[in-house]
Design a binder for these strands. Structure first.
Length: 423
RNA sequence: GGAGAGAUGGCCGAGUGGUCGAAGGCGCACGCCUGGAAAGUGUGUAUAUGCCAAAAGCGUAUCAUGGGUUCGAAUCCCAUUCUCUCCGCCA
């Protein structure tokens, strides 16, 4: 959620910046500013009214104490009309506030200056690319065939137990998963992140806090009996640790790393995108989250990008980094770098990580603030990134490391898997 | 799941209808004292929002959350959430 002050003071600037995200904000911005103005007038009237009532109540109290019942009773008559008016005003105020909140959450975050214009993924800017794309032997196949051949992942069994998109990992497939999770967690810890094991379901407040609600309601599984949402990413519970929190300068840096299963309904997905491990309803991910001060949040973003780069380098996978264009960025992000690994058998790039700075957009909703050295409170900046999402890493590993008689395991993972080869 | 007790500021804790944003203590910040420190001592120490260019100042709201009673609620009533104790069930 954007800060209301910015909308009040520079509405045209906001409209202009949001055009980079291909968002036509003019109408909405003006509606918000008008409504805000209206709300403040109501607030003022109500406050004045209540002040008057409070004054009268004190006077009545005093008269009672003096035993002057008659005076007290006359004053009481006056409070009745005030009370009526206050009730009316507070209803109007509540109405205006609700509408304002409803409109405010519809405005996306402003993109950072470096965000390229563009409407689609093709307009994303390739920042860098590294790693050798391996030349595979002529019998090489996509990961779903490898998974079957070596009995690593059973998609049909998952369908039987739960439904499409809930694969069953088994044997060395399951062990490789676990090895990756441990490698990612350990790497995070080595980089100074505190490990968190969050709940996998969250309440409405948390889902709202990170912006899953109200817009993305249909993308989450909901346990209706208790009104709990299955988390689509560990970002949700971990970031909500800091909901309604005021941090001190001494609390920094705030760095969390968390493994979790992630649940996504992925309504509306189809085609080659969903084949094999490419898109699942349940998958594993290690997430990194940082809370930063406004003045250095972009340095922190670079640090997080460097961390993800380290992970992919260690795994020996060919990858590239993209700076997302305005049209491809998420609603809440100010700047996002996507990481894609090359899946050699599918001959396509697969997104495995997305690292973003949300600046104060999430913090504003979360009420996550910092009390600075001079005693002023200001909004914090929030950042997060996948480090990393498992399924597509798994897909790329299986495909890129396949040899004629099996699948090799990158050296860095061997201490975690306990085996060097799948065959 | 059943029965009972409870939820007050960063923390502890007082407050059962008015003068309570809230005693007292701890902690913290700044000052005095000191060669330096401790002790002592003084002052300050919540959040949101509105008026104001801003600061100061003032108004309003907030004693788990939401509603109600009342001229007036931390205090009384109702609902919800959470915590603790006991019983039941259970990995």
């Amino acid at each position: 959620m954007l800060q209301i002050n910015l909308l009040r003071e520079k509405p045209e600037f906001v409209i202009e910046r949001l055009a980079i995200k291909n968002f036509k904000a003019s109408e909405l911005v003006h509606a918000i500013v008008d409504l805000d103005q209206k709300k403040r007038v109501l607030q003022k009237n109500l406050d004045d009214n209540l002040a008057e009532s409070n004054k009268l109540a004190t006077e009545i109290g005093n008269f009672f104490k003096q035993g002057n019942k008659a005076e007290a009773d006359t004053l009481k008559l006056r409070t009745a009309t005030l009370k009526e008016a206050s009730k009316e005003l507070s209803e109007q105020l509540e109405d205006a506030s609700a509408k304002l909140a409803e409109l405010s959450v519809q405005l996306p975050n402003l993109p950072h200056d470096s965000v390229p214009k563009g409407t689609h993924a093709e307009h994303n800017e390739i920042v860098s690319q590294e790693g050798e794309i391996p030349v595979l032997h002529k019998e090489a196949v996509p990961h779903w065939d490898l998974a079957k051949k070596f009995n690593l992942i059973d998609f049909d069994l998952g369908s039987k137990i739960s439904g499409a998109g809930f694969p069953v990992y088994r044997g060395k497939g399951a062990r490789l998963q676990r090895a990756l999770i441990n490698f990612f967690l350990e790497s995070g810890i080595n980089a100074g992140y505190e490990e968190i094991q969050p709940p996998y379901v969250v309440n409405e407040d948390s889902a709202y806090g990170t912006g899953q609600l109200p817009d993305k309601e249909g993308q989450m599984y909901l346990a209706t009996l208790d009104k709990l949402y299955l988390i689509p990413t560990a970002e949700v519970p971990v970031t909500n640790i800091y909901r309604d929190v005021i941090l001190k300068p001494a609390d920094f840096p705030v760095k969390n790393v968390a493994y979790s299963a992630c649940f996504r309904r992925e309504a509306g997905s189809y085609g080659k995108d969903v084949r094999g491990l490419n898109r699942l309803h349940q998958f594993d991910k290690v997430e990194i989250v940082q809370i930063a001060r406004a003045e250095n949040s972009y340095e922190i973003l670079d640090e997080m990008v460097a961390h993800v780069t380290f992970l992919l380098r260690s795994l020996g996978l060919p990858f590239r980094i993209l700076r997302l264009c305005g049209g491809d960025m998420s609603f809440a992000s100010a700047l996002t770098y996507d990481f894609e690994v090359y899946s050699t058998a599918q001959e396509r790039w697969l997104e495995v990580s997305s690292v973003s700075n949300f600046e104060s957009f999430q913090a504003n909703r979360l009420k996550l603030r910092i009390k600075n050295e001079s005693g002023k409170t200001e909004l914090a900046h929030t950042l997060n990134g996948s480090a990393l999402a498992l399924p597509r890493i798994m897909a790329a590993l299986l495909e890129n490391y396949q040899v004629e008689d099996g699948i090799r395991i990158p050296a860095v993972l061997v201490p975690y898997t306990g085996f060097e080869k799948i065959s």
